[in-house]
């Protein structure tokens, strides 16, 4: 969490390897490997997933074909053969149910003409299919109605396992009613300035960020 402009999305973009950002100092180790040394697609194959705040549309590329390609790449990286068509479909239908995705959306072009909620659900569907080690959800709750929020949150909860971790970037406690965090970190001016349990989010909801900004100022 953190106020606008504190660097939450920047952090997500840097970790995912967006070319617009240059890392001038520091290092990032991901499962013992130098993350910054990897190309974006390698990071993804290593198990880093970013659910985009604004998922792009890719006209002409069917959602299912896109997923098939992505899943095959990630499997290849893990030394696995691509799934047989039948198995892929089974796997896909399983995960699709998780986010209550409409069947006709899957044959449509990636995100093209999707509503805001459908796009976000599609992100979670991709996450479910790719089975990442670390998923970063960048304001996945923005623009969602209550039902979509519940569906997305349920999906995330069901994917939770001892082998993976999820970083949820959000402004609102609302999402955290559904996805209960183990830790809450507050990012301000590019630094984590406060950490706590789920109560911290409630406190922020109530008091806003000013008191934290003040604390930081006093320490400086």
């Amino acid at each position: 969490m953190g106020p606008n402009g504190s660097g939450k999305s920047t952090l997500a973009s840097v970790l995912a390897g967006r070319a617009d950002y240059e890392v001038t100092e520091g290092e990032v180790t991901f499962n013992g490997k130098d993350l910054l040394d990897m190309a974006p697609e390698e990071r993804a194959r290593e198990g880093l997933f970013l659910a985009f705040q604004y998922p792009v549309e890719i006209p002409g590329v069917s959602n299912i074909n896109f997923l098939k390609t992505a899943v095959a790449e990630v499997r290849k990286h893990r030394g696995l053969a691509p799934l047989e068509a039948k198995d892929f479909l089974k796997f896909f239908n399983e995960k699709k149910a998780l986010v209550e995705m409409d069947s006709n959306l899957t044959s449509r072009s990636v995100n093209e003409g999707f509503s805001g909620g459908e796009k976000k659900r599609n992100e979670i569907l991709q996450m479910a299919m790719l089975e990442p080690k670390l998923a970063i959800l960048d304001e996945t709750d923005s623009g969602l109605d209550i039902d979509a929020l519940r569906i997305v949150a349920n999906g995330v909860n069901k994917l939770k396992s001892p082998d993976n971790a999820t970083v949820v970037i959000t402004h609102y406690q609302r999402l955290l009613d559904y996805i209960v965090p183990d830790f809450v970190h507050v990012l301000y001016n590019g630094r984590i300035v406060k950490s706590g349990g789920k109560e911290l989010a409630l406190e922020l909801e109530e008091k806003g960020y000013d008191w934290i900004k003040k604390e930081v100022a006093e320490l400086a």
Binding site: A19, P40, E41, A44, P55, I58, A70, E73
Partner: peptide
């Protein structure tokens, strides 16, 4: 570039 990065982020070169 956004489209390409989106694909990259899903493991596609």
């Amino acid at each position: 570039e956004d489209q390409i990065f989106y694909c990259n982020q899903r493991g596609i070169s």
